[in-house]
Structures are given as C-alpha cells and as structure tokens.
Simulated assay, not measured.
Amino acid sequence: MTASSRGTNPGPSENADPLAALGDLPGVPGTVDSVRKAVDRVYGHRVMRRRSNEITSEAALRGARASAALAGADWALEEVRRRSDFGGEGEPRTVGAALRLTAEAGQLLGVWRQSPLRALARLHLVAAGGAAPDETVGRPRVAGEKVSEPLVELPLPDAEEVTGRLDGLARLLLRESRAPALVTAAVVHGELLALRPFGSCNGLVARAAERIVLVGSGLDPKSICPAEVGHAELGREAYLKALDGYASATPEGVAAWIAHCGHAVELGVRESTAVCEALQRGAA
C-alpha cells in the first residue's frame, strides 16, 4: 500500500478501494470537478474537431520541454523545437530523455493496464538511454546503489521499502477502483517521486507515468492537456512543497498534492487552449 493511502486511515468500508478514499478527502471532489470541466472545454474547442493531431503533437513537445525544465534543463521551447542532437552530456541528454519519454508514453497504455511495473521499467530504459550502467537500467535499485535526483531532497527509502511499495502500488492500479483519474495520476506521480526507485531519471519517469494514467483513464485520451507544463509553471518550490505534503501521508498533505496536480492539469489545458486559438487565427 502506498504512503498516501496509509496516511488517510480509511475505515473498513473504504479499505477495499484505498484510491477512492483519497478522492473523498476534503477539497478533492471540487478539484476533480474543476479539472474535468476544464478538460471538457478544450476538447470542445472547434479546432479540435479538425486539427487534434496537431494539438497532440504540440502538447507533447511542450510537455517534454517542461518536464526537462523541472529536471534542470530549462530550455526555451524554440530551442527544443529546432535541436536534433540530444546525445551530449548534461542538459541535452535530459531534454532528449524527456522527449523520448513523451513519445514512448503513448505506446505503453496496453502494457500499463496489464503490468504497471513492466511499463515503469520500460520508461526508465527509454529515459536512461545509455546514460547509466546497463545493470541498473530498467529495474528498481538494490541495496547500496546511489540515486541521482538532485531536485528531490526527501529522505530516500531503502531498497526493501521501495520494492514493497512499488508492489503495493501496482496491486492498487490493477484493481477495480472508482477513484477519479486525477487522483490515481497524482498518487502514481507522488509515489514515484517519493520512492525514487531508479538510479536516475525518476522525476522524468514519474511525470511520464502521470501522463499515461491521465490518457489511459479516458480523462485526456488524445493527450492534449500536458500537466508537465503546469508543474513547471507553478515552479519547483511549489512542486516540492506539495510533494512534501504527499510524503507526509497526512490527509491534508495528500489532498494538497492532489490539488497541486489538478492545478497543473488545468494550466496544461490553458496551454493547449492557447495553441487552439493560435491555430484558429492562423498564427501557428
């Protein structure tokens, strides 16, 4: 079971659906409703009826750029758009990893539904792209292995705890749940950031996994609402403060993290709405 579901201390009737219990936390139903309405509005935009593929492509690019920015490679959108060589060390490799993950996420929906852990392993393999020793790529870290994730400063769970919590998360995801997509996506994102199960690229993988849940759940089936853009726009300080709340495992902290993720999706909606408006004006 995840830290978040432990922290809510659900009653007996809720134990059968811990994720749904999180959806009932104070303030969360309102956040879920607000996000649903925002997503519905952009899907109803007249440009979406004719040019949805363009919106999806642009959202993917902007989402990847934003995820890379949160990982320390804050490049201008046009720089990401024009570059083709992402094999260099440092920031180019980070941007390349974010771009590869965004492309891969759409191919993993079926795998995710059957085996979330296998999908996560694939995401890490794609993200690492040869940057890490082969034996550490695509599997959770073992005792004694270090983690390179400078953005997140939470205490690092040991390898045994990582294994147990990943297994618990996977079991939750494979069960029937009435939990809203936003809640599930926020838990996946928060749990992966808190655990940092891989030796590298955990933030990039966590944000890609959030995207998979939002798309696969049907909330954002065309992947046009890049939450990564919202996370970056809200800033690292707010991101980490909200993550601290999730890691606290208190109802208030988890609800605040879900609200933060909801706001990020809404900002992603705003970004794609602006793209729709630009296309309608002939400016993009």
Rank of each mutant, 00 (worst) to 15 (best):
G27K: 07
L169M: 15
R122Q: 09
T250P: 05
V32S: 05
M1W: 14
E176G: 08
S84R: 11
L117H: 09
D134C: 01
L154R: 00
P140R: 01
G7E: 11
C201L: 10
S223D: 12
D40I: 10
R62G: 09
W112S: 07
G230N: 08
S13Q: 11
G88A: 09
P140K: 05
S5R: 06
T56Y: 14
R36H: 12
D74V: 01
R236C: 02
G268L: 07
A68D: 13
P133Q: 07
A278I: 02
A105W: 12
G88W: 09
A59L: 07
A127R: 04
L172V: 13
A159I: 02
V229R: 13
K146P: 00
R62S: 15
P133E: 04
A20V: 06
T250H: 05
E160W: 14
P18W: 07
D134A: 15
V137L: 03
V229F: 11
E14V: 11
S223C: 14
L70I: 07
D40T: 14
S217A: 06
G106V: 04
E176T: 13
G30H: 10
L61P: 07
D17L: 01
S34C: 05
P157L: 08
D220P: 03
L214S: 02
A206N: 00
A283Q: 12
G106H: 09
G138F: 06
A60H: 13
T184L: 04
S84C: 04
